[in-house]
Simulated scan of single mutants.
Amino acid sequence: MFSAKTFLLFVAAAASPLATALAENGTVEAADFWAMFCDDTECSQNCGQSVQVSNPGCLNQNGRQSIRFHGGDVGSGDYSLVISPSGDCPCQESCSSIPTNTECWDISRFQDAKSFRFIGGHCDGNNC
């Protein structure tokens, strides 16, 4: 049969698949939240595919004006958005901490950016 630990892991994972994740050591921990880049400042038009905020991969999302956050504890992590002036995230032109407890973040001031990436922690100095 199931051990108590296995049973608890199963129950926790089934109860909220977006809010929990299985860590390498076999314990359940809170998962981070997700982001969708959108064409308008209200997070309602042509929102793209969801990406995990903890994924540091480059996102070529030029012309986007907002980010809709969802899943997990939205904005509870310590993450920042790195902004690049050209595609494929070659450098950091500017960087901004993700606001906590927000579902829609107006990023229209970065409208000329060609690519973005999320990083854990705070911003380093600009290097473009």
Rank of each mutant, 00 (worst) to 15 (best):
Met1Ser: 02
Phe2His: 02
Ala4His: 08
Thr6Gln: 15
Thr6Lys: 10
Leu8Asp: 08
Leu8Tyr: 04
Leu9Trp: 06
Ala12Lys: 13
Ala13Trp: 10
Ala13Val: 13
Ala19Asp: 11
Leu22Phe: 15
Glu24Leu: 01
Gly26Lys: 12
Phe33Met: 02
Ala35His: 07
Met36Tyr: 07
Cys38Thr: 07
Cys38Pro: 05
Asp40Thr: 01
Asp40Leu: 04
Cys43Ser: 15
Gly48Trp: 09
Ser50Trp: 10
Ser50Lys: 10
Ser50Pro: 15
Val51Pro: 00
Gln52Gly: 12
Gln52Ser: 12
Asn55Trp: 09
Asn55Pro: 01
Pro56Trp: 08
Leu59Asp: 02
Asn60Arg: 04
Gln61Lys: 09
Gly63Arg: 04
Gln65Phe: 03
Ser66Asn: 06
Ile67Trp: 01
Ile67Asn: 07
Arg68Asn: 14
Gly71Val: 00
Gly71Asn: 07
Gly71Glu: 02
Gly71Leu: 02
Gly72Ser: 06
Asp73Gln: 09
Gly75Pro: 15
Gly75Met: 03
Ser76Ala: 13
Asp78Arg: 10
Tyr79Val: 04
Tyr79Pro: 01
Leu81Gly: 02
Ile83Arg: 13
Ser84Glu: 09
Pro85Phe: 05
Pro85Gly: 14
Ser86His: 12
Ser86Lys: 10
Ser86Asp: 15
Gly87Met: 08
Asp88Met: 10
Asp88Asn: 15
Cys89Tyr: 13
Gln92Arg: 15
Cys95Arg: 03
Ser96Asn: 04
Ile98Met: 06
Ile98Ala: 09
Thr100Phe: 03
Thr100Cys: 05
Asn101Tyr: 00
Thr102Leu: 03
Glu103Cys: 00
Glu103Leu: 08
Ser108Trp: 03
Arg109His: 02
Arg109Met: 04
Arg109Trp: 00
Phe110His: 05
Gln111Met: 01
Asp112His: 07
Ala113Tyr: 01
Lys114Ile: 10
Lys114Thr: 05
Ser115Thr: 11
Phe116Tyr: 14
Phe116Asp: 07
Phe118Trp: 09
Gly121Asp: 12
Gly125Ser: 15
Gly125Asn: 14
Asn126Met: 00
Asn126Gln: 06
Asn127Met: 03
Asn127His: 01
Asn127Thr: 05
